[in-house]
Amino acid sequence: MTTRTRLLTTADVLAAADRIRPYARRTPLLDVEIDGRRVLLKLEHLQRSGSFKLRGALNAMLSGPLDDHVVSASGGNHGLAVATAAALLGVRATVYVPESAPASKARRIKAAGARLVRHGADFAAAAAAATELAQRPGHRFLHPYDDPAVVAGQGTVAAEILADAPAVDTLAVAVGGGGLAAGTALPAGGRRIVAVEPEGCPCLHDALAAGRPVDSAVTSVAASATGATRVGAIPFDILTSHEVASVLVTDAQIVQARDRLWEECRIAVEPAAAAPFAAWLAGRVPGDLPCLVVCGANTDWRPE
């Protein structure tokens, strides 16, 4: 475990909540009964920028002196969060995305005021180019998940859930690079954490099996948001020090869950945000009162 990871506690999450409060929305909980079972949905897709990622970006940018120019690499949601946070805080931003990044996310990044650069076939290639740019004076690279301030910021989602519904006994989240899952574990107070990934994007699942972060293949309908090829070292250290259940769901289950969120609740989200609901529908999320984080809606999907 790294020193930086060991220092992250619930206090860091609460400090992040205070830091970002003037800029981030406190998103609502929806209490519903589906298939005869009660479940809470944390509607984080209603967050500014359309996903939870804004929280981590804001906390990282506000944790020290503001940089002149923030640089990021992203499949879409983190880049949009950085672009939005930069606009809110009055700094410049450049966002590198892979060539495969969805047009809907690229369009929104540019609309938020950031300079958008398409580069490479995957996140790793985009990140390498972004890191090179960030070496310039006054520039800073902001990692989407392997940064302690980002992880603490993402943990504010769980802190809000538990403040609004302390009886929640299970928290289920989608996993990309692990920042949201790790942040969720920090204030969880021993509650169950269910980390859900597509079968085609199993970087946390593979890391837990190997006992260390390893490279994983990425191919899924949800890959633009959960497509990290390797779980972050900081999230992995946190997650392996807490009780976390790793669950894989198929693309078919994800699409079915996405469509049911619309049919049952009129919630329209991107595929990754439906992954925890897919696991819950399949009976893979235990607890008397589970809460599923509906993490993002940066998509142009519309029901037929």
Results as ranks from 00 to 15, higher is better:
123 F>V: 11
123 F>I: 13
135 Q>L: 11
85 A>W: 07
200 G>S: 02
289 L>D: 15
38 R>C: 03
59 N>D: 09
224 S>I: 06
135 Q>D: 11
284 R>G: 00
231 V>T: 14
160 E>W: 01
125 A>E: 12
108 R>C: 09
201 C>V: 05
304 E>D: 15
253 Q>L: 00
260 R>G: 01
195 A>V: 13
112 A>F: 07
74 S>H: 02
188 A>I: 06
81 A>W: 09
95 V>F: 01
225 A>Y: 02
142 L>N: 06
123 F>M: 13
7 L>H: 14
37 R>D: 13
121 A>D: 15
5 T>H: 05
192 R>Y: 12
241 S>I: 01
97 V>Q: 05
263 E>S: 15
239 L>H: 10
80 L>V: 12
166 P>N: 11
227 G>H: 10
50 G>Q: 08
98 P>E: 02
232 G>I: 08
72 S>A: 15
192 R>S: 15
183 G>I: 10
123 F>D: 04
220 S>E: 12
101 A>I: 00
192 R>D: 15
202 P>W: 03
232 G>F: 07
79 G>D: 07
125 A>C: 05
39 V>L: 03
111 A>S: 14
242 H>D: 07
150 V>I: 13
8 L>C: 13
17 A>N: 13
92 R>F: 08
17 A>P: 07
238 I>Y: 03
47 Q>T: 03
233 A>N: 13
218 V>S: 10
182 A>H: 01
38 R>Y: 05
296 G>H: 03
224 S>R: 02
16 A>K: 02
248 L>R: 12
70 V>D: 06
254 I>R: 00
12 D>N: 13
269 V>N: 05
277 F>S: 00
152 A>S: 10
238 I>F: 07
197 E>C: 02
218 V>I: 15
55 R>S: 08
218 V>F: 10
275 A>M: 01
91 V>L: 13
184 T>N: 10
152 A>F: 04
268 A>Y: 08
169 D>G: 12
70 V>L: 09
121 A>L: 04
284 R>V: 00
222 A>H: 03
31 D>M: 05
214 V>W: 06
245 A>G: 10
304 E>G: 15
76 G>Q: 10
248 L>I: 12
123 F>P: 07
304 E>P: 15
121 A>W: 06
255 V>Q: 00
34 I>R: 06
13 V>L: 04
6 R>N: 13
128 A>I: 09
232 G>S: 10
242 H>S: 09
249 V>W: 00
49 S>Y: 03
178 G>R: 01
20 I>E: 01
242 H>C: 05
33 E>C: 03
147 D>T: 03
214 V>L: 04
130 A>K: 01
208 L>M: 14
123 F>Y: 15
128 A>M: 13
121 A>P: 00
65 P>D: 14
240 T>F: 03
72 S>D: 12
31 D>N: 08
178 G>P: 06
197 E>N: 09
193 I>G: 02
126 A>Q: 02
62 L>P: 02
199 E>Q: 05
226 T>E: 05
120 G>S: 08
208 L>E: 11
215 D>F: 14
19 R>S: 10
263 E>Q: 15
171 L>C: 09
93 A>T: 07
109 I>T: 14
141 F>D: 04
125 A>I: 03
53 K>E: 00
